[in-house]
Amino acid sequence: MAQRFGDFPSMKEALIARQIDATFMIAPLAMKLVSDGVPVRIVYLGHRDGSALAVGADSPFKEFKELAGKRIAIPSRFSNQNLLMARMMKKNGMPPGSIELIEMPPPDMPSALASKALDGYIVGEPHPSKAELGGYGRILFFMKDLWPNFISCVLVVRQEVIDGQRPLVQELVDGIAASGKWLEEDKEQGAAHRKAAAVVVGKMFYNQDPALLEYVLTKPLDRVSYTNLTPPRDTFDEIMDLAVETGVLPRHMAFEEYCDPSFAPELEGLPPVRSFPMPTAEELATVGK
């Protein structure tokens, strides 16, 4: 059974209370849960890239350095967006704390930018696109510019379920991999699959404007990617180093302690699978002008 949550804390609490068995969540939050003794593991990634740094449409910023002293919203201190900001500040020789980072629920970010309460925000889609489409924001950086193959959300499963229901977890992971493969399959030939997904997912799951999701998925096509989702040890080690360095996590943990990549399927043998009914022509006509 699927259950939609409006924020990460509630989802985390449902996971702790064993009300849900598996969920997508931001990677460092999953690591933090493990370090706090919550028995969960990361088994797969949700997507790659898919975040952007949005600033005011009329703002003068061109380079990362110019954000010194500005106020940028992040979704959570336990987000890779936060760690990415730390990584970029370090890379640009800026002392930690030289950008004011504030935590904010992602849905509030576009309106906060519009009212100039923020100089910018860095978060997963569709929130950066919303500012772009609304005309009051522009994308300063896509993730591919700052941290290629950025990991944002990961699939987290409770240890009890991993131990007791392996076939079920495998089916879930295979399903994610197969539908990711389906999304990418016709990417170079018009990306009809992504458009169909925007319509169906917008209506069925997220109650978001399909046109917005279509924009997110297709303009540009590499804003979000859905392949290459096996948890990579080297990137997670780098995330771990950054998290400990910035005080987000209290201690170093070995990859095996919080990650179980044993479910990740070999993509070669896996057929692409569409996991939802195809939208009608009229429904499709609502997007892709």
Partner: peptide
Amino acid sequence: WIPVAILWFGVE
């Protein structure tokens, strides 16, 4: 009122 408050008064 939270979204409205943010639009009117920012995050202060």
